[in-house]
Amino acid sequence: MSRAALLVLADGRFPAGGHAHSGGAEAAVRAGRITGAASLEEFCRGRLHTAGLVSASLAAAAALGADPAALDTAADARTPSPALRVAARRLGRQLMRAARATWPSGELDALAGEFPKGAHQPVVLGLAARAAGLGADDAAHCVAYESVSGPATATVRLLSLDPFDATAVLARLAPELDRVADQAVLAARRTLDDGVDALPAASAPLLEISAEAHAAWAVRLFAS
């Protein structure tokens, strides 16, 4: 297990397409639900414990070697918004490209062959973590962190929020992020025996509803 490999995978500059996605922040900013650091923090906290937990569990389960196709179906069932399913698959395909170039692996090749238009991003990330010699805990932390760092970075651009404030939000969420990653790994371990129903299904109705509205905007800065 390499801590440095985790830094490479978790780096916001890892070229896997994340920069074009706001994690729902663009819609929340437009609706006036994110107006500054405090509401950004509540937004991120809600996303972390719902979509973040689910994604982290999917990634951890993939990193442990659970069947990626079954995980992908489980991800679909946990993503009612077609716009979010499309975004997750696009990001999965982009991550797949970067991961195969970075950590060539037969498992990644096989998943790419099975899902030429992309599997859900957290599933790909879990396999990428495996290919990089990382564990379930690393994959869960990486995905849990992405679930909040994406909206925070986007909000800096959308609201011209002070970047130091946005980074402080992420730092304040760190203890909760560790707990979510732990929960995700526990759920992922249960999945190996009990199947994908053991994965968390925490949902955030507003993220799903506003993703649909956002996808229909004629003019927007972010893809999701």
Binding site: A28, E42, F43, G46, P200, L206
Partner: peptide, 26 residues
């Protein structure tokens, strides 16, 4: 046998943070 929909919503005192916030119920 194939999962079609799986959604859990937790709210109220003691629920994971952010449940009443701008991402979840607002």
């Amino acid at each position: 046998e194939r999962p079609l929909l799986d959604q859990e919503l937790a709210c109220g005192p003691g629920a994971p943070g952010g449940w009443d916030g701008p991402a979840v119920l607002a």
